[in-house]
Amino acid sequence: MIDLSVQIGSLQLANPLIAASGCFGYGVEYAGTVDLSSLGGVAVKGLFLAEREGHPPERIVETPAGMLNAIGLQGIGVHRFVREKLPELRDLRATVIVNICGSTLDEYVELARILSDADGVAALELNISCPNIKEGGITFGCSLHGTFDVVSSVKKVTHLPVIPKLTPNVTDVAAFARASEEAGADAVSLVNTFLAMAIDVETRRPQLSNIVGGLSGPAIRPIAVRMVYECRRAVKIPVIGMGGIASARDAIEFMIAGATAVQVGTANFVDPFIWPKLLDGIREYLRRHEIARVADLVGTIDTTSREKQWISS
C-alpha cells in the first residue's frame, strides 16, 4: 500500500496534487470532469475583497509549448465566494486553498479574517506574484520587506496555514522563500508565471490587450524546477512546486527537486481528465522504485558528481 499523503504545515493532503489557482475557476466548474475530493487540494481563482472585471480580451495567446495570459484577476470577490461557491465545494469534499490578492496590506488581512471565519477553507495562498495587475500583489512579491510584511500580518489574524505564492520575476527567488519563512509562512508555492509578451508581426500589435502577460506551460518547466530546487535548499518549510507540469514524470521531477506537493495548471486546460492519470503515474513510479511513501521522494535529487561516478566505475 503506497502512502500518497503529504504534510503542508498543519494541513495533511491526501496526495501531492493541487489544482493551480487561476487554472481551475472556483473548482466547481470542474466537478463534472474530476472528483474534487480525489485531489490533494484545489487552489481557487485569486480573490480580492470586491468583484473585478479583469482585462478586455484578448486575454490569452498560445506560444511555443506554452501560453501567455493576462486575465487581470476577474473574480466574484470574497463575499460572493463564501456565499455562492464555498458551500458547494464543501459538499464536494474538496480541500480548498483560497488564493487571496490585495491592493494593500489591509486588504490581505481583511481577506484572511473573513476566510478564517468561513467554514471549509483549508489554507490561504497569498498571491503576491500576479504579473498582470498594476496595483498591489506583485509589488509585495518583488520586495523582501513587502513579502515579510504581508506574510507576518496575515499570520497574526489566521489559524490557517499561510502559503505565499512567489513570483519568478526576481533575481533570487530563494531570498523570497527565506523572507516568507522568517515571517512565519507555513509553506511557499512557486512559480507564478513569467512576465512575457508576444507580438503579431503582420499588424505589429501586441497579442494581448494588456500588452504583457504571464507565460505558463511546459516551456517554463526547467526554470521552475531550478527555482524549486533553490528554494528547497534555502528553507525548511515545505515548497509547493509548479510550472508546466503535464505528466506524472514532470510532477515527480519537481518532487525530486524538493517540492512536497505540486500544482497543475495549464495541463488541466489541455486535459481536464488528467488528474487520475497523474496519480496513477506517481503510484506506478513509487512502486517501481520501491518507495512506500511519496513524502520520502521529496528532495531526493542525487547531486553526486557524475565525474566521480565515472571514475569509481
Binding site: 475557476g25 466548474e29 486575454r59 490569452i60 495570459n69 486575465i71 476577474q74 481536464p272
Partner: peptide, 10 residues
Amino acid sequence: GCGLGGCYSC
C-alpha cells in the same frame, strides 16, 4: 483556453 470555465479567457 479550456472550454470548461477554468481559464476566463473567452
